[in-house]
Amino acid sequence: MEVTLKVRRFNPEQDEKPYFAEYTLKDVEPVDRVLDLLHHVKWYIDGTLALRRSCAHGICGSDAMRINGVNMLACKALVQNLIKGERGTIQVEPMYGLKVIKDLVVDMEPFFDHYRSVMPFLVNDTIPEGGRERLQTPEQRERFDEGTKCILCAACTTSCPSYWANGTYVGPAAIVQAHRFIFDSRDEAGADRLAVLSEENGVWRCRTIFNCTTACPREIPVTQLIAEVKGEIGRR
Protein backbone atom coordinates (compact mmCIF):
# COMPACT_ATOMS: atom_id res chain seq x y z
CA MET A 1 0.00 0.00 0.00
CA GLU A 2 1.03 3.60 -0.36
CA VAL A 3 0.33 5.89 2.54
CA THR A 4 0.65 9.64 2.75
CA LEU A 5 1.46 10.30 6.37
CA LYS A 6 0.63 13.84 7.43
CA VAL A 7 2.27 14.69 10.73
CA ARG A 8 1.69 17.87 12.65
CA ARG A 9 5.15 19.04 13.54
CA PHE A 10 6.59 21.70 15.76
CA ASN A 11 10.14 22.16 16.94
CA PRO A 12 10.27 24.97 19.50
CA GLU A 13 13.95 25.51 18.76
CA GLN A 14 13.22 26.30 15.10
CA ASP A 15 9.58 26.79 14.26
CA GLU A 16 7.39 29.75 15.02
CA LYS A 17 4.26 27.73 14.63
CA PRO A 18 3.19 24.17 13.94
CA TYR A 19 2.80 22.88 10.39
CA PHE A 20 1.91 19.63 8.65
CA ALA A 21 4.72 17.67 7.06
CA GLU A 22 3.87 15.00 4.49
CA TYR A 23 5.72 11.77 3.96
CA THR A 24 4.92 9.36 1.18
CA LEU A 25 5.52 5.82 2.36
CA LYS A 26 5.56 2.95 -0.11
CA ASP A 27 5.30 -0.79 0.56
CA VAL A 28 3.22 -0.29 3.67
CA GLU A 29 1.64 -3.52 4.94
CA PRO A 30 -2.04 -3.40 5.88
CA VAL A 31 -1.13 -4.78 9.32
CA ASP A 32 1.52 -2.12 9.93
CA ARG A 33 0.74 0.13 12.83
CA VAL A 34 0.84 3.90 12.74
CA LEU A 35 3.75 3.55 15.16
CA ASP A 36 5.63 1.57 12.50
CA LEU A 37 5.05 4.37 10.00
CA LEU A 38 6.23 7.01 12.45
CA HIS A 39 9.29 4.90 13.19
CA HIS A 40 9.99 4.64 9.50
CA VAL A 41 9.97 8.41 9.18
CA LYS A 42 12.05 8.92 12.28
CA TRP A 43 14.60 6.21 11.53
CA TYR A 44 15.06 6.59 7.80
CA ILE A 45 13.78 10.01 6.74
CA ASP A 46 13.94 12.59 9.51
CA GLY A 47 15.47 11.72 12.87
CA THR A 48 14.23 14.95 14.42
CA LEU A 49 10.66 13.63 14.63
CA ALA A 50 9.82 13.37 18.34
CA LEU A 51 7.28 11.05 19.90
CA ARG A 52 7.01 9.01 23.05
CA ARG A 53 6.62 5.25 22.85
CA SER A 54 7.90 2.23 24.66
CA CYS A 55 6.08 -1.12 24.78
CA ALA A 56 4.60 -1.06 21.24
CA HIS A 57 1.63 -3.20 22.22
CA GLY A 58 -0.83 -0.99 24.00
CA ILE A 59 0.29 -1.49 27.59
CA CYS A 60 2.51 1.39 28.63
CA GLY A 61 0.31 4.27 27.54
CA SER A 62 3.10 6.35 25.98
CA ASP A 63 1.83 6.97 22.47
CA ALA A 64 -1.71 8.27 22.62
CA MET A 65 -2.22 10.77 19.80
CA ARG A 66 -4.85 12.05 17.41
CA ILE A 67 -5.01 9.83 14.36
CA ASN A 68 -7.43 10.90 11.65
CA GLY A 69 -9.09 13.12 14.23
CA VAL A 70 -9.61 10.42 16.86
CA ASN A 71 -7.46 9.67 19.92
CA MET A 72 -5.72 6.31 19.70
CA LEU A 73 -2.50 4.61 20.66
CA ALA A 74 -0.26 4.67 17.58
CA CYS A 75 0.90 1.15 18.44
CA LYS A 76 -2.67 -0.16 18.30
CA ALA A 77 -3.81 1.69 15.20
CA LEU A 78 -3.47 -0.64 12.21
CA VAL A 79 -3.25 0.89 8.75
CA GLN A 80 -5.89 -1.51 7.42
CA ASN A 81 -8.40 -0.04 9.85
CA LEU A 82 -7.67 3.49 8.71
CA ILE A 83 -7.38 3.10 4.95
CA LYS A 84 -9.51 1.07 2.60
CA GLY A 85 -7.93 0.25 -0.74
CA GLU A 86 -4.39 0.57 -2.05
CA ARG A 87 -3.60 4.13 -1.04
CA GLY A 88 -4.71 6.81 1.32
CA THR A 89 -3.79 9.46 3.84
CA ILE A 90 -3.32 9.19 7.59
CA GLN A 91 -3.13 12.35 9.65
CA VAL A 92 -1.33 12.34 12.97
CA GLU A 93 -1.45 15.14 15.54
CA PRO A 94 -0.56 15.52 19.20
CA MET A 95 -3.40 15.14 21.69
CA TYR A 96 -5.51 18.26 22.20
CA GLY A 97 -5.84 20.06 25.48
CA LEU A 98 -2.24 19.63 26.63
CA LYS A 99 0.53 21.98 25.60
CA VAL A 100 2.61 20.75 22.68
CA ILE A 101 6.31 20.69 23.49
CA LYS A 102 7.75 19.17 20.35
CA ASP A 103 6.01 17.37 17.48
CA LEU A 104 3.83 14.67 19.07
CA VAL A 105 5.17 15.21 22.58
CA VAL A 106 2.80 17.10 24.88
CA ASP A 107 3.20 18.33 28.44
CA MET A 108 1.78 15.50 30.60
CA GLU A 109 2.25 17.28 33.94
CA PRO A 110 -1.28 18.76 34.18
CA PHE A 111 -2.68 15.31 33.43
CA PHE A 112 -0.68 13.67 36.22
CA ASP A 113 -1.56 16.54 38.58
CA HIS A 114 -5.24 15.75 38.12
CA TYR A 115 -4.51 12.08 38.60
CA ARG A 116 -2.75 12.76 41.90
CA SER A 117 -5.57 15.02 43.11
CA VAL A 118 -8.04 12.14 43.55
CA MET A 119 -5.84 10.21 46.01
CA PRO A 120 -5.11 7.35 43.64
CA PHE A 121 -3.98 4.84 46.28
CA LEU A 122 -5.59 2.41 48.67
CA VAL A 123 -6.27 3.85 52.09
CA ASN A 124 -6.50 1.16 54.75
CA ASP A 125 -3.87 0.66 57.38
CA THR A 126 -5.27 -2.37 59.14
CA ILE A 127 -3.63 -5.63 58.24
CA PRO A 128 -5.29 -8.97 58.99
CA GLU A 129 -3.89 -11.04 61.79
CA GLY A 130 -0.86 -13.09 60.86
CA GLY A 131 -0.11 -10.68 58.02
CA ARG A 132 -2.23 -12.65 55.57
CA GLU A 133 -4.13 -11.11 52.68
CA ARG A 134 -7.34 -9.23 53.27
CA LEU A 135 -10.24 -11.27 52.02
CA GLN A 136 -12.28 -10.07 49.07
CA THR A 137 -14.86 -12.12 47.22
CA PRO A 138 -14.57 -12.51 43.45
CA GLU A 139 -17.74 -10.40 43.16
CA GLN A 140 -16.27 -7.58 45.28
CA ARG A 141 -13.14 -7.75 43.15
CA GLU A 142 -15.16 -7.67 39.95
CA ARG A 143 -16.96 -4.51 41.10
CA PHE A 144 -13.97 -2.28 40.31
CA ASP A 145 -12.28 -4.38 37.63
CA GLU A 146 -12.77 -2.01 34.71
CA GLY A 147 -10.88 0.88 36.26
CA THR A 148 -7.86 -1.29 37.02
CA LYS A 149 -7.20 -1.60 33.28
CA CYS A 150 -6.33 2.08 32.93
CA ILE A 151 -2.83 2.77 31.57
CA LEU A 152 -2.92 6.56 32.09
CA CYS A 153 -2.40 7.27 28.40
CA ALA A 154 -4.65 10.35 28.55
CA ALA A 155 -6.55 9.41 25.39
CA CYS A 156 -9.86 9.86 27.24
CA THR A 157 -9.12 13.12 28.99
CA THR A 158 -7.72 14.77 25.89
CA SER A 159 -10.70 13.73 23.77
CA CYS A 160 -13.15 15.45 26.10
CA PRO A 161 -14.60 18.77 24.94
CA SER A 162 -15.30 19.73 28.56
CA TYR A 163 -11.62 19.29 29.28
CA TRP A 164 -10.58 21.28 26.22
CA ALA A 165 -12.87 24.06 27.38
CA ASN A 166 -11.52 24.02 30.90
CA GLY A 167 -8.22 22.41 31.83
CA THR A 168 -8.99 22.62 35.53
CA TYR A 169 -11.59 19.83 35.11
CA VAL A 170 -9.99 16.69 36.60
CA GLY A 171 -11.01 14.78 33.50
CA PRO A 172 -12.19 11.25 32.81
CA ALA A 173 -8.91 9.44 33.58
CA ALA A 174 -8.72 10.81 37.10
CA ILE A 175 -12.36 9.89 37.71
CA VAL A 176 -11.72 6.35 36.48
CA GLN A 177 -8.83 6.12 38.93
CA ALA A 178 -11.00 7.39 41.75
CA HIS A 179 -13.72 4.88 40.81
CA ARG A 180 -11.19 2.07 41.07
CA PHE A 181 -10.73 2.86 44.78
CA ILE A 182 -14.21 4.11 45.69
CA PHE A 183 -15.67 0.73 44.73
CA ASP A 184 -12.87 -1.38 46.21
CA SER A 185 -14.32 -3.12 49.28
CA ARG A 186 -10.95 -2.73 51.03
CA ASP A 187 -10.71 1.05 50.75
CA GLU A 188 -11.63 3.52 53.50
CA ALA A 189 -11.25 6.92 51.86
CA GLY A 190 -14.17 6.88 49.44
CA ALA A 191 -15.77 9.87 51.13
CA ASP A 192 -12.63 11.98 50.72
CA ARG A 193 -12.40 11.16 47.02
CA LEU A 194 -16.08 11.85 46.49
CA ALA A 195 -15.58 15.20 48.21
CA VAL A 196 -12.87 16.12 45.69
CA LEU A 197 -14.99 14.93 42.80
CA SER A 198 -18.12 16.76 43.87
CA GLU A 199 -16.31 20.08 43.73
CA GLU A 200 -16.56 22.50 40.83
CA ASN A 201 -13.86 20.78 38.80
CA GLY A 202 -15.04 17.29 39.55
CA VAL A 203 -17.55 14.96 37.91
CA TRP A 204 -20.22 17.57 37.20
CA ARG A 205 -18.17 19.00 34.36
CA CYS A 206 -18.82 15.76 32.51
CA ARG A 207 -21.53 16.35 29.91
CA THR A 208 -21.85 12.67 28.96
CA ILE A 209 -20.42 13.21 25.49
CA PHE A 210 -18.96 9.68 25.36
CA ASN A 211 -15.76 10.70 23.49
CA CYS A 212 -13.77 9.23 26.35
CA THR A 213 -15.41 5.84 26.05
CA THR A 214 -14.72 5.76 22.32
CA ALA A 215 -11.13 6.86 22.81
CA CYS A 216 -10.18 4.38 25.53
CA PRO A 217 -7.75 1.84 24.06
CA ARG A 218 -8.42 -0.46 27.00
CA GLU A 219 -12.14 -0.53 26.32
CA ILE A 220 -13.02 0.82 29.73
CA PRO A 221 -16.63 2.05 29.79
CA VAL A 222 -15.41 5.44 31.00
CA THR A 223 -18.68 7.32 30.76
CA GLN A 224 -20.46 4.62 32.71
CA LEU A 225 -17.85 4.71 35.47
CA ILE A 226 -18.23 8.49 35.68
CA ALA A 227 -21.99 8.03 35.96
CA GLU A 228 -21.47 5.55 38.80
CA VAL A 229 -19.33 8.07 40.66
CA LYS A 230 -22.00 10.73 40.12
CA GLY A 231 -24.57 8.28 41.49
CA GLU A 232 -22.43 7.55 44.49
CA ILE A 233 -22.12 11.25 45.30
CA GLY A 234 -25.89 11.49 45.22
CA ARG A 235 -26.33 8.38 47.30
CA ARG A 236 -23.91 9.20 50.12
Binding site: S54, C55, M108
Partner: peptide, 10 residues
Protein backbone atom coordinates in the same frame (compact mmCIF):
# COMPACT_ATOMS: atom_id res chain seq x y z
CA UNK B 1 10.17 7.15 31.25
CA UNK B 2 7.20 8.20 33.30
CA UNK B 3 7.16 5.46 35.96
CA UNK B 4 3.93 3.87 34.75
CA UNK B 5 5.46 3.42 31.27
CA UNK B 6 8.08 1.01 32.62
CA UNK B 7 8.07 -2.46 31.12
CA UNK B 8 7.13 -4.10 34.39
CA UNK B 9 3.66 -3.03 33.28
CA UNK B 10 3.85 -5.51 30.41
Amino acid sequence: LYPTRSHTGA
